[in-house]
Design a protein around this nucleic acid. Structure first.
Lengths: 228, 228
DNA sequence: TCAAAAGTGTTGACCCTACACCCATGG
DNA sequence: CCATGGGTGTAGGGTCAACACTTTTGA
């Protein structure tokens, strides 16, 4: 496309990814060591610049893929950070995206970029305004997880009710009554009970369930209000 | 600041403002006629490019001020639109902001920029992806207005309960039971009843109230959950 | 005196919370 | 046989929705 808007500033545009994962009982965050100056070696979100021929969504997916090798991951925009001096090198605006990745995908992450998982209540100090981004992303998923079934994105396809409860307890850093929780979630009729049991976490074993997305969408059309 | 990130695309960055106002019973939107080609004369949100020395918030406030002459207006980011071809002239990303302005400020708007108010259920077709922006902004204020007292931003300082109810009815395009509504809002203890009555809209007259923001914030700290 | 909007209370249904015991199994 | 986590039911309180009549007053 030819340039036609004249005498107007053009600006560096970036995305940064807040990558959440869930490990048994804790919500975790994937951080990397910044590979170049300034602040080389400091903990940082993974990010990248947006090219002329990609949207922000495209760029976020590309950045996530570069670190994790994963595609088709649940990602959503959080907000854009645009303070003039947020990046000391050059004026850059950056849009934060959060990503939810399943525990059973975590395979070969830790090798590259010095990436490491941190529990959300134990996050080191981060470069630039990345701590603010993490705060904003946490606030966003906490707000959204109450009203939309995004929690399932953080679990393997087959999960147990206690696992799901642990997840929500991890997200909200609180405890939930197990009877009330399972009644509530099962009453929505969006989980399918499987024959199989998970015998890893208990001797009795807990039944596996899976999320029925089509069912959920149909129920939403009929006025279902997902609330945890 | 010196440029130090090399070989990276720099991009035009803009903001567009979705300006909401409330007129008796309807939620309205302020649109302008685009003053230059392409699409000159078509209905459009008011927008502007972001300069090197201002944040997106700064730019949005500047743009709003240019059209309305108003400052210190309630504005919030909606989301960023970044499809590669969304602006046919040159690749531009644009962050949408919504603004809530009080009816009694509307004075000298209509003179400039061919600006005109439209009821939200009667919006003409807009240039580029501006209709999507309006949709996203509406969704956002509907979602937020349930949990945060932003409605007051759209009303004069002194307002009556029936006016407030009309506002929420306008936002959600629905009808609300007046007994349940006033019980609910008054129970929160965030409104102060004034001596004065509004005699314009009825013969009996309705008492004016005003929003006590300090009170609200104190109650929130003590766990108040604002819900309409 | 009448039209038009303001204001006010009660009841039943439902939902949410709190709470404790038995079950199945591996070791 | 025992320790561990999984699974289930009920009762009481609170909240929400539905509903209709009286009041005020300007014209």
């Amino acid at each position: 496309m030819p340039k036609k808007y004249n005498h107007i500033d053009r600006i560096l545009v970036a995305v940064d990814c807040i990558i959440f994962g869930f490990d048994r009982t804790k919500l975790k965050l994937l951080l990397t060591k910044r590979p170049f100056d300034p602040e080389k070696g400091k903990w940082s979100l993974i990010g990248g610049f947006v090219g002329c021929n990609e949207s922000l969504d495209d760029a976020a997916e590309r950045v996530l893929f570069t670190l994790t090798g994963l595609k088709n991951i649940y990602m959503e925009e959080v907000t854009t950070f645009s303070e003039v001096k947020r990046d000391p090198v050059e004026r850059t605006i950056s849009t934060a995206y959060y990503a939810l990745i399943k525990a059973d995908n975590n395979v070969k992450l830790l090798s590259d970029y010095g990436a490491q998982w941190f529990a959300i209540n134990d996050i080191p100090s981060l470069i630039f305004d990345h701590s603010k981004m993490v705060e904003a992303a946490l606030e966003k998923i906490r707000s959204i997880a109450r009203h939309r079934p995004i929690g399932f994105e953080l679990l393997p396809k087959k999960f147990t009710i206690p696992q799901l409860r642990n997840l929500y307890e991890g997200i909200y850093e609180t405890e939930l009554d197990k009877r009330n929780f399972s009644r509530k979630i099962l009453a929505m009729n969006i989980l399918e009970k499987l024959e199989e049991k998970d015998k890893l976490n208990s001797k009795k074993g807990a039944y596996f369930y899976q999320f029925n997305k089509n069912r959920y969408e149909e129920l939403v059309r009929n006025g279902l209000n997902f609330v945890i």
